[in-house]
Amino acid sequence: MGRLLRILLNSSGLFTFAGLQLLCLYLIVNHNDTQRQIWVETKSVYGSTLSEFISDKLAFLDVARENEILRRENAALLARIPGSGYNTAVDTIPVQDSAFQQRFTYLASRVINKSPYGPYNTLVIDRGANLGVERGQGVVSDGGLLGIISEVTPRHARVISILHLDTRISAGLDNSAFGTLKWNGRDPRRVTITDMPDYVPIAPNDTIYTTGYSNVFPSGLPIGTVESSEPLPGTGSQDLTVVLLNDPLLAGNGYIVRDLFKEELDQLNRVR
């Protein structure tokens, strides 16, 4: 304590000087216009930098609260990005033509969910019963088939992909020979057509079309090209291996095919 007092006494000149000088600076800043302006300017230039530095160094103090605020904000923002909204725009354009009555209309939809790749692939699209989607309607995608609607909710629908072991679609050549399209569960780029009569001449790279006989897809939609044919002895039929035009696993859009004559055709089928 004594030493401290001695130090204070020894530097009493310094303390007197510092105190009085601070008082002078205070008087200068408060009673002289030029100096006050310079002081205010200096304070505004360096003061913000200083306070920024200080708040930077002390930012960790309320990081938990900040984090909570940011998480809430993130949640609010995530709810607003386009992917989390349900697109209510309806993209279907019926064509008015006096010579051709409209039979099929297409409803654009987006694939919003896909099952992991396996033998039974399904997907979910963002169109449902509210827009007239029904069980059994076909879904085509850019340049090929995607699948068939199996379940419908008011806003969504589940699609059985053509890469599903239970899928059966009528497919044929442009010379009216037709068979049943299946998937054997092995190669997502290749499907098989069974029950094709073995007398029908098949050449590799022949194009396979939908036939329209199942009232699911319109006729004449290209599906794929023949890679090879294999006659099955004793059955009178042959199996065709078909390379798909599109890749259903990668499809992001689907067009739901709606058959306006479906009820009428169903009535015919009911009469035996």
Partner: peptide
């Protein structure tokens, strides 16, 4: 009418 100017300077000089 320069409150603090001369005082500050002379305080410094005295120091």
């Amino acid at each position: 009418e320069t409150l603090g100017l001369h005082a500050g300077a002379l305080t410094f000089t005295a120091y």
